[in-house]
Design a protein around this nucleic acid. Structure first.
Length: 352
DNA sequence: AATGCGGGGAT
DNA sequence: ATCCCAGCATT
């Protein structure tokens, strides 16, 4: 006998699903690519990136031959850049170790870089119809509300229950369809805030709706404390060339490029900022042009307060990992949004 | 089990 | 402002 809730979800999906490019195929390459792009990312935000990647790299073998900066340039602006680095690492493994053929089981997929439990289940079910539930934020919300899981999402109790229910519901229907349907249901109908339960086909089975707890389930995540960092970037120009450097530590924007930076944990007066500039370039022979107002850049877990200092000097010093690049070559480097937007505002990079 | 990692859209 | 998104890797 078919479980009525999963059957309702599939029926709902039939008439409410979006037409998305990676849903028209069982080829694991576009499915994998879309899943990596969509980790912690809304479909509408990821869609243009998906098209860019498919066009630049039509196959996993083509992607495997790219160099990392090339991939980061296409990824620039999407965030969580370890996804891009792992995307390339995974492509290389598939292309060179598995001769261009994706593993076709969950247990093999989950070992690849950048592929965790959710993504392995998504690929295994969408491409190979393996019966493994893909459990993402949407699924946790939908199941929590229907069943009435009031413990915090991702807690052991919540995980245990969601797993159990998922296996039950995926049992009698097409695994690929079921996973698509419940996620789409969470993304479009059972949304986090103010879902329209009046048109919900499952409301009569829903614990949260029946008990007027839709706004209480799932329980809110714990808040993380936001750290503040002060960045002072130096646009150091000589003729049409400027200095850039690659970020290398285990920190935000790893492997992306930026301008020479001084970082501080406190706000600094302009004199001190200029003193730090002198410490960096070891010369007093420069022409101050301007210092920008502080620009606030919000990340999930920290806020950056950034000022850009623009100077000119007669010739650019070489130091550490600094690169001297012509302004016409800047498109060959991947920058964080913050830096790219500033370079754009100064016409070093063409407007979008 | 907790933490770090981006950027943007919806409310 | 606040929440959270087709999560993963590291500690």
């Amino acid at each position: 006998m078919k479980n009525s809730i999963s059957q309702n979800l599939l029926n709902w999906y039939l008439t409410n699903s979006r037409d998305l490019p990676w849903r028209q195929t069982t080829d694991p390459y576009p499915i994998w690519l879309s899943e990596i792009i969509l980790q912690q990312t809304r479909v509408l935000q990821g869609l243009p990136y998906y098209y860019k990647f498919i066009e630049a790299f039509p196959t996993v073998d083509a992607l495997a031959k790219a160099d990392e900066n090339e991939v980061l340039i296409l990824w620039q602006g999407l965030g969580y850049y370890s996804r891009a680095r792992n995307l390339l690492a995974c492509a290389k493994t598939v292309a060179f170790t598995f001769h261009g053929v994706f593993p076709n089981h969950y247990n093999s997929l989950v070992k690849l870089p950048g592929i965790g439990k959710y993504t392995a289940a998504a690929i295994a079910s969408f491409a190979f119809n393996e019966k493994v539930p893909a459990i993402d934020g949407n699924v946790i919300r939908v199941i929590s509300r229907i069943i009435g899981i009031e413990s915090r999402p991702y807690s052991p109790e919540s995980n245990q229950l969601v797993q159990q229910i998922s296996h039950q519901w995926i049992g009698q229907v097409s695994p690929a369809r079921y996973n698509q349907a419940i996620m789409e249901f969470g993304a479009l109908q059972c949304v986090p805030k103010n879902p329209n339960c009046n048109v919900c086909p499952i409301a009569s089975f829903c614990y949260a709706f029946q008990n007027k707890k839709v706004h209480l389930i799932p329980a809110p995540k714990l808040k993380v404390k936001i750290k503040t960092r002060f960045f002072y970037y130096f646009l150091i120009q000589s003729n049409d060339s400027i200095l850039i450097e690659q970020r290398q530590n285990n920190d935000i924007w790893k492997n992306l490029f930026q301008l020479p930076l001084h970082e501080s944990s406190t706000d600094l007066p302009t004199e001190l900022v200029l003193q730090e500039l002198v410490n960096l370039i070891h010369t007093e022979d420069w022409l101050f042009e301007e210092i920008s107002l502080p620009i606030k850049h919000l990340l999930t877990h920290q806020q950056l307060i950034t000022r850009f200092v623009r100077i000119r000097l007669s010739h650019l010093p070489q130091k550490g990992n600094w690169l001297i690049v012509d302004k016409n070559e800047l498109t060959q480097y991947a920058f964080p949004n913050l830096v790219r937007d500033y370079l754009r505002s100064k016409n070093f990079i063409e407007p979008k």
